[in-house]
Amino acid sequence: MKYIIFLSLLFTFQALFFSGCFNADSAVKPTTYDIPTRNHDLGYIPYDAKLDKPDFLVCDSTNIRSGRNRLQYPGGKNKFRKDITSKYLYKSDYKDFSGYIVVRFVVNCKGESGRYRAESLNLDFSPSDAPSDLLQYAITLVKSLDHWTKSTAYDIETEYSKFINLKISNGKIEHVVL
């Protein structure tokens, strides 16, 4: 008990002392900035009529979760890597491309996946130019392996964003990050 009182007094004294050193009243001054209006979560992918099925709905665009292990592929990550690599068909048009193809999508409250997007990056994550059909092909491949399940039963209605990163070397898949 003696220690607790001693520590509490000492802490209070030092906190007051240091606060005083830097600014006597700034610590209690209210901030004046307004909280902006609610909008979408970063993981939300807006609907694009040219790319998306109109019947794929996101229940709550402000509450999209992310997490590497929140969506499971049957057989695990290694199985996914093997499946996508074995399905991938190399084309000579791809041989000049090395870097990443990142495919993102959303799994909605019904457990359906949609809003697939792909972008190409260099190994330092700066934007790069990949053959346009490689981007579309990457989406087609990831879509074809659409067997995602949510990790736990209680979050069955939670919506998730997911990304699959294909590391490509001279047009061939070198590794799959997910």
Binding site: G43, S66, L121, F125, P127, K162
Partner: peptide
């Protein structure tokens, strides 16, 4: 941080 976690690497970097 949340950009990287969501695979939005160009923005994150």
């Amino acid at each position: 941080v949340p950009f990287f976690k969501r695979g939005l690497f160009a923005e994150g970097i």
